[in-house]
Design a protein around this nucleic acid. Structure first.
Lengths: 158, 158
DNA sequence: TATTGTTATACTCTATAACTATA
DNA sequence: TATAGTTATAGAGTATAACAATA
């Protein structure tokens, strides 16, 4: 399956063997590189990529419950609770109880949450520009497309 | 930067907003999908993707030190130590002291490490086949290529 | 002094199971 | 009984700093 030949470590330099030929390995590497790059370029805002996704989701869907966030972002509600605690303590989100069902929260951004999200979005988009610079025109859209197809395939199979 | 239009949540279905238009977001999603799929299809072998990479690296480079592994796979030596402890306890790797420098280890696979690696490799390559089935011919190689270019770009910039 | 590796420690992310409160 | 959310707990993964042994 690895379509790229293994590089023999003839010289004494270490070789990654078949690893560079695996999509899974490269996916992991690129994702780690992206997190580390963001840590360097946006670390001062104290928002992880996961927290950014969360705030972005709340901006697009004000009033949603924690259950909905859990389902749509693919993390357990027990994982979400402490994350939301942190964002609420920082006054970035509001956690109003819903009128119709007092078990559920209605989550939304505060004005300061919206401001921080906008600042973070600029850093995220700077990284997207950086990544796009490594691609030729059209490749970026192909890449988004392929990644989505891979997700769907893996989630429906095996 | 997100080139795909946001889907308005007109119907009441939640929307991911601009997230599907970010490469970083899709990278993360695909990587998580890959880990979870592997957990389902290869969990019984008790080898994480990281441990698989490690064993593969040792097979390609028998006799390397922990420092070299650390550098080539991009994890701190203090992270590596307990991982290698676990693999050595399971008799999957050998940790001989090097003759020329008694500080360094010479790491290599045991026969049973090689056998387990071969079994895991079959599961990994089955996943690669599964992912390739979501792509058209040629796309897989393009994808490997793009992911590598993105890594290089992010590691050299910002 | 510098380097290899270990340890202590800490923080994040993740989940399962048992729980509270509401429905 | 069922559902939304919390808590206790546990495990993987990651790193920094201080350390021991060796060079």
């Amino acid at each position: 399956m690895p379509q790229q030949a293994e590089q023999p470590a003839a010289n004494g330099a270490p070789s990654l063997g078949p690893l560079p030929g695996y999509v899974g390995f490269n996916l992991r590497r690129a994702q780690v590189a992206s997190f580390r790059h963001l840590e360097r370029t946006a670390g001062s805002l104290n928002l992880t990529p996961g927290q950014f996704s969360l705030l972005t989701f709340l901006e697009a869907n004000p009033g949603v419950s924690q259950k909905t966030v859990s389902q749509e972002l693919g993390v357990d509600t027990s994982t979400l609770t402490p994350v939301l605690d942190g964002l609420a303590n920082r006054q970035l989100i509001r956690r109003g109880r819903a009128d119709h069902d007092r078990r559920t929260y209605a989550l939304s951004l505060t004005p300061s949450g919206t401001r921080l999200l906008n600042r973070m979005r600029a850093r995220i988009e700077a990284q997207e520009t950086e990544m796009a610079a490594a691609l030729s025109p059209g490749e970026r859209e192909d890449l988004l497309n392929m990644l989505e197809r891979i997700c769907l395939r893996l989630e429906s199979n095996g």
